[in-house]
């Protein structure tokens, strides 16, 4: 397999292999806390920080971690960072911390983080692992923001709490309820699938046109 470049490591996670939109991992926070942009953003940043920290430490210590207990050690590292993140959030943004509730602690079992440790940090240099973590983390934040803004704008008629459509806008309450989470992500994935399909169809028709010419 071809070695990836540093640039690829960074960019890969943001869009092409976006952990949420393409790999469909880490659905629990993506659906549970995205009812406002603020919550999504804070959750995204917290996850980003934990991912970055864990990737850094895992790749730093990878030579000292025996294979048999690597998962346990990874989880230990992740859990430590999550606990730190939770305390920081509670100290810095107590209102958002309350709104996110148990889902901050659940970052521990976010498949994205453990997945990046196993798939990348455990086998690559610190620098590359950090790049990879930044890429995946940004990808996660991007997905969270997409979800959060769609749900808040339609569901409350606001963006980051600022009213967008005036007083008489009828908010679509369903968007901020649990079904709205599933449906919003479903619609996003369907749209991406549709765009991808169209692009592929265009490519195919362009190629066949070339062949004919």
């Amino acid at each position: 397999m071809r070695k990836s470049t540093a640039q690829e490591d960074l960019l890969r996670g943001i869009w092409r292999e976006n952990p949420v939109l393409v790999q469909v991992l880490g659905l629990c926070p993506t659906l549970a806390v995205t009812n406002t942009v603020e919550n999504s953003l804070v959750m995204g940043i917290a996850t980003f920080a934990v991912l970055l920290g864990s990737s850094f430490f895992v790749s730093l210590f990878k030579r000292f971690i025996p294979n048999e207990i690597r998962i346990s050690v990874y989880i230990l590292i992740i859990a430590t960072f999550v606990t730190v993140a939770e305390m920081c959030l509670e100290a810095l943004v107590p209102e958002v911390h309350k709104a996110l509730g148990a889902f901050i602690a659940l970052i521990v079992v976010n498949c994205i983080i453990l997945g990046r440790q196993e798939a990348f940090a455990a086998k690559n240099t610190v620098w590359r692992s950090v790049l990879d973590a930044i890429g995946s983390g940004l990808g996660f934040i991007l997905a969270m923001l997409m979800m959060g803004s769609l749900r808040e704008v339609i569901g409350y008629g606001t963006f980051l709490g600022i009213p967008l459509f005036g007083d008489s806008y009828e908010p679509w309450v369903v968007m901020i309820l649990p079904p709205g989470g599933f449906l919003t992500l479903g619609v996003i994935l369907l749209t991406l699938g549709y765009v991808e399909e169209r692009r592929r169809a265009n490519r195919v028709s362009a190629m066949s046109a070339q062949e004919r010419a």
């Binding site: 000292f64 971690i65 025996p66 294979n67 207990i69 050690v73 453990l114 997945g115």
Partner: peptide
């Protein structure tokens, strides 16, 4: 998917002491 890649092959036996120590 959760663990992304299969674990690298075991090369040598690691002593229990080292595991516990780590």
């Amino acid at each position: 998917t959760a663990h992304a890649v299969p674990p690298p092959p075991l090369t040598q036996d690691v002593s229990t002491v080292k595991l516990v120590f780590t």
